[in-house]
Design a protein around this nucleic acid. Sequence first.
DNA 1: GCGATTTGACCCGG
DNA 2: CCGGGTCAAATCGC
Length: 290
Amino acid sequence: MGSEFSNGKKAMEEELMRGRDMANQLLEALGHDKLNTHLQHEDRSKSVLPFVEDLVRKVLCSFTNTLLLLNSNQLTPSLSSSTNCPQIESLLQTCKSRKILNPNNRRRCYKRKSISPTWEKDSSILIEDGYAWRKYGQKMTLHAKYLRSYYRCTYKNDQRCSAMKQVQRIQDDPPLYRTTYYGHHTCRSPSNPEIILEPLSPSASSTLLSFNNSLHSKQENPFPSPLLASIKQEPQKVIRDEHCAQNQLSALENLLLYDYDVSFDYSRNATFLSSGEPVQFEDVCGQFGF
DNA sequence: GCGATTTGACCCGG
DNA sequence: CCGGGTCAAATCGC
């Protein structure tokens, strides 16, 4: 559990570091380019370079702010005790009050999914779909007689697979289960490497569902799986996708969605929208030696 | 011991 | 404010 989180955090951190390094390289390249442009064109007022340079600095700042938040558990002691930056302290305080930073607090903020169901299926039999699911909760809903179970892909953290499903028993006799899928598998199971979802060509999609935002209800399972993997409990179905990457978020996007939105103005202030506290670019970047 | 499940608490969108 | 969705400590089972 904890290691899953730290694995995911590590991956996000690496992704952010990579992005930051690339932004740094871009900034450096811009520096050379600016010099050349300055020598070649006297009229710099028409140049877009200042704007681009500013943009790159903002991208850098965004990466830095996010890294700062990501690493706040380690940074908190030193920052809170010795930082000269009231904005950072305020930011960290906001994080603490929202139970984001303190590892002793039980809760972290999370982004609630807002995507539409990918598809839905009613079934009275147990069908394996070959994917590994991890149950992460169950709930009694208001107008249902039975529990609703919540599953996510076992490889959610390892491979950033965003597939999820809900299974709701809707009838007792004969037993009937409704399975609703959200998102799409991008994982490659170690035991079943062949079942990775491939984007399908239009010609191959005649028997497939079209995955737009509309709900496809009560579809017969068009993809009987050759695999009967060791998946427990609820009935399983198979999904395929014409737009596998459609609902996937990069690590950075996931991170940005996670809790903080960052906006900038042209006076090089970064504002964490959820806290409303302005943060000076230099103050934050200074923490990372920029 | 480790991974999966259970379960009550917490969070957030409507 | 309510109810559905998610988290994470406790527990289970191999």
